[in-house]
Computed example of a mutant assay.
Amino acid sequence: MAYVLSMNEIFISYATEDRERARLLAAALSERGWDVWWDREIPLGKSFDEVIEKALAQARCVIVLWSAVSVTSEWVRNEASEGKRRGILLPVFMEHIDAPLAFRLMNGADLNEWSGDRGDAEFARLVERVSELLRQAGDDSITDVTPVAVGQRATYKEAQTKWWLTPWSAMILAIVVIGAGVTGYLLRGDRPEPPPKEPTTVPTKVSPGIGTTDIEKRIHDLVGTLGGAIPATSLAKGFHVPDLGVRLAFLTPEQSASTLGAMPAGAVVMEVESGRPMAKAGVHVGDVVLSIGDKKIASEDDLRQAIFKIGPGKTRYSYRRDGEIKAVVVDCP
């Protein structure tokens, strides 16, 4: 008798150490009438990789259970990569950890404290998303799932952050808006300045500490000279790549011009963490990243997509520093 898999299948990828939690989730999903492939019992005469590949290929939804153990498993990473490639991957966080870099921009269900409760809000979110994927796959046997009102919340450490939460973010925020303030002042002449709307104040007395970069000092000088209020609507977005120890921000030509040359246009390196891969490769604050792998960085979307594709191993980066184009290969753990 041939080994046959149902086409209406959920594939659960997990580390062996997480087997009991995988069993608990599989049981809860099976109760809804779904065929869940999780128990990796291999039929006689079949090889492990052959069965896994066939089950994964026929799956319509891939759920990966991220834990401190599974993030280091090559098997789990490979299975998750296949699910992501096909657009059917659903991450589930069983512990408060960061997913591997290649999956870090994907939101997931937080089942860290889940003990099997079918009414749990995060489990309900997962069930809704599984239903959507199976419907998209053309499975007519999927019945409607009663929507559950659940507030959206990020369950992983997002690489894209709002800058007003960190000191380095105030730096780029300050230079972009301060430049705009200088330009506005020069163009305004003697006209009275209307009161600012909901300003976010940047301290005028900031003493650069030990190890402060030249760019930070220049920003400090600008802030000290203009001392101004910064509109809250001028917030920018940045990208933090923890595994590489780097923070990047994309500045448009208009934003760069508003800084009066303090910051260049493009994907600017805002922070390099000491001892991390980017620092070891010689990348500096103020460098402008031109390409990541084979992806040229010409917009914020380009930067986001390039970061999303970074995975373990070596990746080539090209960047500009003081008008000179340089290239470096960075090994991501």
Rank of each mutant, 00 (worst) to 15 (best):
V130L: 02
E82P: 00
R135E: 04
L90A: 05
K84S: 04
A80G: 03
H96T: 14
R77A: 09
D120S: 09
V130Q: 00
G87A: 05
F93W: 15
H96C: 12
I88D: 08
L134H: 05
Q136S: 09
G108S: 11
A121C: 07
H96M: 15
V92Y: 00
W114C: 09
P91K: 01
G83Q: 04
G119Y: 10
E132W: 07
G138Q: 09
S141N: 11
D140F: 10
A137H: 01
E122D: 06
P100C: 08
Q136L: 11
L101E: 14
A109V: 12
G138I: 06
R129E: 14
V92N: 03
P100Q: 04
S115E: 15
K84C: 00
S81V: 00
A102Q: 15
A99Q: 12
P91L: 01
A137R: 01
L111H: 07
M94H: 05
I88Q: 07
P91A: 03
L133T: 01
P100T: 02
R77G: 01
A102M: 10
V76R: 02
V92P: 03
R118P: 15
E82S: 02
G138L: 07
K84D: 06
I97W: 09
G108L: 08
R85L: 11
R104D: 00
N107I: 06
R125G: 04
R86M: 06
I142F: 03
L101Y: 04
I142Q: 12
Q136W: 01
E122G: 03
D117R: 12
A102K: 13
G108I: 10
N107K: 13
G138K: 11
V92S: 02
I142P: 04
R77S: 08
A137I: 01
L111R: 08
D98V: 08
V127H: 05
R77E: 07
G83A: 03
F103E: 00
D139N: 11
F103I: 01
A99H: 03
A99R: 08
H96P: 13
V92L: 04
G116K: 11
G83T: 03
A80F: 01
V76Y: 05
D117G: 07
F103R: 00
L89G: 01
R85D: 11
W114K: 08
I88V: 15
G138R: 10
I142T: 07
R85T: 06
E79I: 07
D139H: 12
R125S: 14
R129T: 07
R86Q: 13
R104C: 00
G108E: 12
L133N: 07
P91C: 03
D140W: 08
T143H: 14
F93L: 15
A80K: 02
R118Q: 15
D110Y: 12
G116N: 09
D110C: 13
M94P: 06
E113S: 14
S131T: 15
A121M: 10
R86W: 09
L111K: 08
F123A: 02
E128K: 04
L126F: 03
L105P: 00
G87V: 02
A124L: 14
N78T: 10
G116V: 09
L105W: 05
S81W: 01
D139E: 15
E132L: 13
A80D: 01
V130G: 04
R77Y: 11
S115W: 10
